[in-house]
Design a protein around this nucleic acid. Structure first.
Lengths: 357, 357
DNA sequence: TTCAATAATGTACGCGCGTTCATTATCTCA
DNA sequence: TGAGATAATGAACGCGCGTACATTATTGAA
């Protein structure tokens, strides 16, 4: 291992004090251009690089942004597409802000988990993916909030709280998806929901219901899943397998289903696969719209109409805003206000909803 | 923000010295059970948690494992499946070892990039994904090695060097894939390669060539792509789009191609999609085998025969071994030897290679 | 030239913890 | 009961850096 070069050696070689070396490296206070160059030259000669840990320690700031992912090994509840897009977006911003990303896998169900991320003070703020809108989780988040730990939820909304969030307009996206089906003339449109503990599952439901109500296909006061005909509501957990299972549940009612709005592409794909085994072919026997506009939507047969969500931008924004909130990136103007952003979603029409015969 | 509770406050409340508090928390040296409990009680009362940064600083060890990912925003050269599996494996092990994961996106082409990861001493070791076997990159890695920075490559082999590696037997996997096609009676088998700068692209080529040579379909001295008929060799970059492009290149020669071995599932899918546009249907007009056994292979029509790679385990192992190498997880027995592991791959037969008519 | 203002640099301390070394309490066996 | 051994604890220092404050050099205006 290379011996450690510290500020001290650089100071000696450059013939200045240690403080001056620090000033040069942090660009603090006025200084002679000549000394600056001498210090930089000495640093270069010795191959000096400030020790990040020592800096963090002295600044009392880790320079790390925590990123919390839910993960149960081997169980792919979440689409890898979603994660890698969001992660990349965060990575982009974090790099621009001179921060680092500390990844944390959260074991769902493990209690009192969020605060452990902060209390060792290894991250200054964090971005949370896949939070669920459940009482226990809400309590956890509330505790973080009360502790003054800055965090931001991505793609989830916790109702009744004013947490920092970067969400997407899933209600609107879903509404437009269902409207698309309605406009094509379909009437018997089933809804394949994801796990209800995620807020955006509810968003999709609301979008679906609104479109159906407006079309006069549901009573004006229909709001809950129970308010719609049983043969039109199915529930999965966002995995492809759960989509396949939904196919079995749907099978007996196929004569009364013209189209399906699935809450993500993976379930849509599983559903198509499952229905195909019953001889039911998408784009011929029924129309289908997915959600996420993942790469998979481009390669199904027929290519899947879906709703695009700006995951990358959501990640980037979440990182930017939560960092700004702790005074990073706004030139020492101090912390900023809390925020709740909602980005636009967009219907991407492909070939899975052919016109009614 | 909550006021910071330090060792000092705990020591005072417990009526012991600060050193004793540290001893209790690190379980160092003999101590009275009673004092231990008093300290823990005091810590609990004050809600004390050691400051991780200060610990890192004092221990001169960051407690972070760096994970380097190549990423060009918006360009999906690497399969998200591959990354999320590897990441999860690393995450699992890192958690077990009491370490944290620091994610770094590397901009390919940005020079002198690897050493910057270490020199700030924010990571104690690192795992590198997607390294290429090119002179410049090799030089970079050599520099790391010479600097004594412990790292481990995943899924890549740099020939002629003795870097730490966790690889998979891609040559064997490819050999078995092609043998599978040969055993089914196919003779005119094309090879769709990925970017040649990755070592595992070469591995696949070798496996393919060996099987073809053994079957007497290539001269005994055939080794390079140039040694095989032009209509049997195609090159992409592992993206789906490049697979589609290969379809165009392949189209004029379709009459002389019975089967294709594609270097990953995504290119296989792109190729199938592209060929379908020429009316060429996989499993009917030609056989195809993919690689990676990603989730996508399960949902193509027909389901894609592929080669499974234990990505999760590779990630876990890489983390475990590289951490052990710096003395983590082997109870202070110090650093371990360097290592080069190669895990098994496995052919997964589905329905994309129906028997020849 | 002189003095105040400002630039430029140095001195000194503390961030919270691990750890060495010194010190004191307790035990063991004669 | 005493002495050496060992257990148990405390005192003190340093890890590498940021920075407040003190000090000295330089400038500009009178």
């Amino acid at each position: 291992m290379a011996e450690i070069v510290t500020r001290k050696e650089v100071a000696e070689l450059a013939g200045v004090s240690e403080a001056t070396v620090s000033r040069v490296f942090n660009d603090v206070g006025p200084m002679k251009e000549q000394t600056r160059l001498r210090v930089l030259q000495a640093a270069k000669t010795l191959n000096y690089h400030p020790n990040a840990i020592a800096q963090s320690f002295a600044r009392r700031r880790s320079g790390n942004l925590g990123v919390v992912l839910p993960y149960v090994p081997k169980v792919h509840i979440f689409s890898t597409y979603y994660f890698s897009e969001v992660l990349s977006g965060i990575g982009e911003q974090v790099k621009a802000s001179g921060y680092d990303m500390l990844l944390k896998f959260r074991v769902p169900g493990e209690e009192s988990d969020y605060s452990s991320i902060f209390r060792s003070q290894k991250v200054d703020a964090c971005v949370i993916l896949g939070a669920t809108d459940t009482p226990s989780e809400r309590a956890e988040l509330k505790k973080l909030e009360d502790g003054g730990f800055p965090f931001c939820l991505i793609n989830q909304h916790i109702s009744g709280e004013r947490f920092n969030e970067v969400d997407a307009d899933h209600e609107g996206g879903s509404y437009r998806a269902v409207r698309h089906l309605l406009d094509l003339g379909y009437r018997d449109i089933a809804f394949l929901s994801g796990s209800p503990e995620f807020s955006n599952s509810g968003d999709r439901l609301r979008g679906y219901m609104q479109a159906m109500r407006e079309a006069g296909l549901l009573p004006a006061d229909a709001k809950a899943p129970g308010d719609l005909p049983a043969h039109l509501y199915y529930e999965g957990n966002y995995s492809r397998t759960s989509g396949m299972k939904a196919a079995s549940a749907m099978h007996p009612h196929l004569s009364r289903i013209e189209a399906v709005f699935a809450s993500n592409d993976r379930m849509a794909i599983g559903l198509m696969q499952g229905l195909r085994e019953y001889g039911h072919v998408p784009g011929r026997d029924y129309a289908i719209v997915g959600y996420d506009d993942s790469e998979a939507a481009r390669v199904t047969d027929p290519p899947l109409t879906s709703v695009a969500v700006p995951f990358y931008e959501m990640g980037r924004l979440a990182a930017e805003r939560v960092l700004r909130r702790i005074g990073v990136g706004n030139d020492g103007d101090g912390a900023s206000e809390s925020f709740r952003l909602k980005l636009e979603t967009k219907l991407v029409v492909r070939q899975s909803c052919r016109i009614l015969r």
